[in-house]
């Protein structure tokens, strides 16, 4: 189920992932849909960059949405989809059960996205390494 259109960008916090994507793929912020924003409208056209994917997942989790289904719907909606997500699973297991669930959910979604993506890049210090 590889989607030619999907690119996945992962990396730690504040590594310059969005700038990397905008520069590399010659896109501007009008196509960015920010998971951090309380309400952000999906751009028209057939290209979307989903930034802070992990924040959106958390929001959907908290209001009992179904992030997996909703992600698949977005992938089906856009011909070119770039998803940017922080790596959040590389720490001590949190004491809080919801935090554990959140890490688990983001991790599983990333595995699903990486499997479908044409390319996966990991960004560190603003520099991307292609890992798929």
């Amino acid at each position: 189920m590889e989607s030619l259109a999907l690119k996945l960008i992962i990396g730690g916090y504040a590594q310059g992932k969005l700038d990397y994507v905008l520069q590399k793929y010659h896109l501007d912020e009008s196509v960015v849909w920010d998971g951090n924003m309380p309400e952000d409208r999906l751009p028209g056209g057939d290209t979307v960059i989903i930034n802070h994917f992990q924040s959106w997942v958390k929001k959907r989790m908290m209001c009992e949405g179904c992030p997996e289904q909703e992600t698949k719907a977005i992938l089906a909606r856009y011909q070119n989809c770039i998803i940017i997500c922080d790596e959040i699973g590389n720490g001590i297991v949190p004491m809080d059960a919801l935090e554990r669930e959140y890490r688990e959910l983001v991790g599983r979604l990333l595995i699903m996205l990486a499997d479908r993506a044409m390319t996966v890049e990991r960004v560190i210090c603003g520099i991307g390494q292609r890992i798929k």
């Binding site: 790596e87 699973g89 590389n90 297991v93 890490r103 959910l105 983001v106 991790g107 990333l110 595995i111």
Partner: peptide
């Protein structure tokens, strides 16, 4: 080695 839910 990998983080949580990394597929390790």
């Amino acid at each position: 080695i990998g983080g949580s839910a990394s597929g390790k």
